[in-house]
Design a protein around this nucleic acid. Structure first.
Length: 481
RNA sequence: GGUGAGGUAGCCAAGUGGUAAGGCCGGAGUCUGCAAAACUCCUAUACGCGGGUUCGAUUCCCGCCCUCACCUCCA
């Protein structure tokens, strides 16, 4: 079954097929590694991950490339502020990003090229653009792309419709004029190469135009083409990147190759937190660690982030996080039940290879959920259909012979959504402190002695301290509230 | 100011020209010393306002109100 997406370029939903019929070339604009990712960043990567999983389950393979922006104003500024070499600084944040990605159960991309490892390719691209008359070097040694030389400029972001001027009159009030403003032929022209400046410190590479560093947009053009070819299937990122980043990528790339750059564009809406934009001043720029510190598992975060359609602004709240925890618990229990009746063990349920063997089959009761995913990646509808199927199955399990089909159908959906239902339970459970455990032990003893008044009092005491007692047959468990 | 998205039950969130998925919350039952947890079942006369088109609109058109986002290095 073909997978479709809303293509920003054509503003319509279209089937995403690999041009070569087998492997989908998928490039994603990755993080700038100068600090921890917040949940907004992560949502984009997460939906790209769900998309990739869905395509793979549909029977195609994906070549997933996601870059690391490890040189720009921010990385340079922050690393210098900390007196740490750029490479070392960005390595630390890259590791952190990898940790967060793994915690959220994202599949690692097949290639994760860093901008600083591809300076050569970027310089070649600039040279090509200068040769073809699309770029010019300034006296200071910067190189700019001449926007007026590229007729198709603005086709992705619909510049005319959006009335963004390319002469930098911009919004009311105007933007602060850059120091290098005067050396550009037009305000719309953007930097391909930035001549070295005092504040760049030792961050600097040699080039035919003098020492400096690549411009931001350039790295994605150079690396996407290096790994996926001059024309590739799909390019994705957050909506904010439509303009100018992706527009500029198209201009640079197509001006040089005279071939179409990305065939389709996949953009993810931003999220708000408690009803407003995330910002440092509002203090609502949550990182994964922030949320874990509040006692929520990464899988609940994943659930929340895919619980709205990718083109829809998602309002992230602590309430929805609670809702996600509860929903996940139920899904886990349902999964266990399905595995049990079908005689499938947990390892198999999550094993990619095993799931792939069944992925071509009809997903049984979960077929509608699967179809929702293939239709413009409707993750919330897929979740709805999955719950509905689970409910139907509980009422009417059907013939014993079809249990396996149902279980594999569910496994396919769980795999596509990337929900590791069993992970948070074992991991990331805060350990009860010593005094809490003592109280719990005393309460258990009181209960066994049938001193229920004392047992209940202790239970209340624990509750006030933020812990809940879960009585079992032969013991109890503690759970943080 | 311009552009875009959106306003669906207490909260979150799909969707449709023929009166509306799902999750959370809430309620009941089972269980339990009682609870909690878990499981099962149930619930709500929810589609911003005003017009129009239509046999019929939440879904199409127009106007209005409100919210959010974007408007050059921010996923």
């Amino acid at each position: 079954m073909p997978v479709s997406l809303y293509d920003t370029l054509t503003r319509s939903i279209s089937e995403i097929r690999p041009e070569d019929g087998k492997t989908l070339g998928f490039y994603c604009c990755g993080p700038t590694v100068y600090g921890p990712s917040h949940i907004g960043n992560l949502r984009t990567f997460l939906l790209q991950d769900v998309f990739r999983r869905t395509v793979e389950l549909s029977g195609l393979s994906v070549k997933h490339v996601r870059n690391l922006t490890d040189v720009d104003d921010k990385t340079i500024r922050e690393s210098r502020a900390k007196s740490v070499p750029l490479k070392e600084f960005t390595r630390g944040w890259t590791e952190r990003f990898h940790r967060d990605s793994a915690a959220l159960n994202m599949l690692p991309p097949h290639f994760e090229p860093a901008a600083t490892d591809h300076i050569k390719q970027q310089i070649e691209l600039i040279r090509c653009l200068i040769d073809r008359g699309h770029a010019y070097a300034s006296e200071s040694g910067s190189v700019y792309f001449r926007v007026s030389s590229f007729g198709n400029y603005g086709k992705l972001s619909r510049l005319k419709e959006r009335e963004i001027t390319t002469d930098r009159e911009g919004p009311a009030g105007g933007e602060p004029i850059d120091a290098d403003e005067y050396e550009r032929d037009s305000g719309a022209d953007f930097a391909l190469w930035k001549a070295h400046k005092e504040e760049d410190g030792d961050v600097c590479w040699e080039s035919p135009w003098g020492p400096g560093r690549p411009g931001w947009h350039l790295e994605c053009s150079a690396m996407s083409m290096a790994y996926l070819g001059q024309t590739f299937d799909l390019h994705g990122g957050g909506v904010d990147l439509v303009f100018p980043h992706h527009e500029n990528e198209i201009a640079q790339s197509e001006a040089c190759t005279c071939k179409p750059f990305a065939r389709h564009w996949f953009h993810c809406a931003h999220l708000t937190v408690e009803g407003s934009k995330m910002s440092k001043s509002l203090g609502n720029l949550y990182t994964l660690d922030d949320i874990q510190a509040r006692g929520h598992g990464p899988m609940a975060v994943r659930y929340v982030l895919i619980s709205a359609h990718y083109r829809q602004q998602l309002n992230f709240t602590m309430d929805t996080l609670h809702a996600a925890e509860s929903a996940l618990k139920r899904l886990r229990a349902k999964a266990d039940a399905l595995m049990e009746t079908a005689g499938i063990d947990r390892d198999a349920f999550y094993d990619a290879g095993t799931i792939m063997k069944h992925a071509g089959e009809d997903a049984g009761a979960f077929q509608p959920a699967w179809e929702q995913l293939t239709r413009d990646l409707n993750t919330p509808a897929a979740l709805g259909e999955a719950f509905r199927a689970l409910g139907d199955l509980a009422k009417n399990p059907g013939a014993p012979g079809v249990a396996g089909k149902q279980a594999w159908g569910f496994a396919k959906i769980v795999r596509a959504l990337g929900l590791d239902l069993h992970r948070d339970r074992e991991a990331a459970r805060p350990e009860a402190p010593e005094e809490i455990r003592k109280l719990a032990e005393a309460r258990w003893q009181a209960k066994r002695d049938k001193d229920f008044a004392r047992a209940d009092a202790l239970r209340d005491q624990l509750k006030e301290a933020g812990w809940r007692i879960l009585d079992r047959k032969d013991g109890y468990e503690l759970e943080a509230l």
